[in-house]
Design a protein around this nucleic acid. Sequence first.
DNA 1: GCAACTTAGTTTTATATCAAACTATTTTGC
DNA 2: GCAAAATAGTTTGATATAAAACTAAGTTGC
Lengths: 162, 162
Amino acid sequence: MSETIGKAADAGNAGTTSDREIHLGPLENYIGFYLRLAQNASFKAFKRHTGEGDLRPGWFAILSLIGGNPGITPIALSRASGRDKSTITPVLRDLMRFHLIARESVPGDRRSYALSLTPAGKEKLARLSEHAARHDAELDALVGGRKAELLALLRRIAAEID
Amino acid sequence: MSETIGKAADAGNAGTTSDREIHLGPLENYIGFYLRLAQNASFKAFKRHTGEGDLRPGWFAILSLIGGNPGITPIALSRASGRDKSTITPVLRDLMRFHLIARESVPGDRRSYALSLTPAGKEKLARLSEHAARHDAELDALVGGRKAELLALLRRIAAEID
DNA sequence: GCAACTTAGTTTTATATCAAACTATTTTGC
DNA sequence: GCAAAATAGTTTGATATAAAACTAAGTTGC
């Protein structure tokens, strides 16, 4: 961490700004800025947790939603998980490739299909759930008694910012 | 929005789950889940704001930090903006290409260089700042009087989750 | 009952991000 | 002072995501 200490002494230079004197300026009070920092940090930590096995962060929410809603369609998954439908396709392809989910045709709509977990998928979900629970427990510990308030605010931002 | 209503009536099917009956299950109470949703929504809205001009979301934080800290180096930018140093390089290249920033050598360290805004960069930053301020004002409106608490929690998550 | 519109899913393209590997320097420990 | 370790910056490769364009199928309005 030893930063460039003596440099600002130089004349023709406005002063090379070292780490500990950075001014965040307006960013300091921007919700959007800290929302990004917090999400990145949380996602990184989650990746570290799950990545230790053969798991993938993107799989958990999808597997969990299929597990809790057998027969769910890709478009419903997209809406429930808050991701664009075009990002669901490759995840489902992976999950199929590893035989964690099964597709069944939807009677009455040949465009769509119904998803469910295979036994292997249920096992994988169980294992992923442990990691996820541990991860969110860490977050819980950080926010202490203000979890309900934080969740309410985040839900509100997610739902109404657009 | 007319969803597939009559489908669950079919026998051999566990019931095709339509949008309005989705159970989020554990996700419902996961901070990480709503952190992602909120950040994605906020980022999308920001992109919409800035994208109307010739602006780019990634540019604002960087320009703002350079503007507030003339002489800042790429590595200090990386830390202050919370992004990996490898993501700073291409942004700086773009900003250089549009003559919004200038590089100056750092006396005493030939690996690094000092950054500053050109007059054009200052103008661009001023314009971007308006959009950013408007965006964050929307977020402020959503969180009402609980902004300080939200910021404190997000800062804490960003700083301590790793 | 057919044309127009809408919806489900996929593919393609673009952006944001991290991580690892690499080069060129600088700093540190004897 | 020199070898080893650390640091600054870049490049390359991977993943997460959205958006737009496309295909196929369903729904609606006369």
